[in-house]
């Protein structure tokens, strides 16, 4: 499972890919492609993820605005959900931020070990969701570049 791929171009050579994408995991997805030029499968997955992330972020914003009922639990679950798919794709930064959303939603600190107050959690959540979105936008650009998608 060598990362360098002389046939389809190396995603890691795209600026901004470093640190945001785990090459081994993403390579694993790429290997599932039958055609290394079309990359039909991986591309569909990646674009599915774009859609899923957009939706999830919207839901997160709604819950954070609501600030009532089980909104923290919802946020934690949404964080976990997006963590799962971003992890599968190897989108490291987004994954890490989602994990933090998951922890804050459970009123825990970054590492999920210490308890924090609800107010602190709200603050941290607002900040980390914003950060996750930025990270998502950044990695989105890299991926789009990789799939030579020049729309937008």
């Amino acid at each position: 499972m060598s990362v360098s791929d002389d046939k389809g171009g190396d995603i890691m050579s795209i600026p901004g890919a470093e640190d945001t994408i785990d090459p081994a995991t993403f390579e694993q997805i790429l290997e599932m492609d039958e055609d290394e030029v079309e990359r039909e499968f991986s591309k569909s997955i990646v674009y599915d993820f774009f859609g899923q992330a957009d939706q999830t972020f919207k839901k997160m914003d709604k819950e954070l605005e609501k600030k009532e009922g089980k909104y923290l639990k919802e946020l934690s679950e949404l964080g976990h959900f997006l963590k799962g798919s971003s992890a599968t794709l190897g989108l490291t930064k987004v994954k890490d931020s989602c994990e933090k959303i998951q922890h804050y939603g459970q009123l825990k600190d970054d590492s999920g070990t210490k308890d924090i107050k609800e107010e602190e959690a709200q603050e941290k959540l607002a900040k980390i969701i914003k950060q996750a979105k930025t990270e998502f936008d950044e990695v989105k650009e890299v991926l789009k570049d990789f799939y030579k998608d020049d729309a937008e």
């Binding site: 290997e31 599932m32 569909s44 997955i45 599915d48 899923q52 799962g84 798919s85 599968t88 794709l89």
Partner: peptide, 16 residues
């Protein structure tokens, strides 16, 4: 698996 993206990837991996 509840996450469709993960489901899709796993299915593909298993098929492989």
């Amino acid at each position: 698996e509840d996450n469709l993206i993960n489901q899709k990837v796993m299915l593909r991996m298993l098929a492989g």
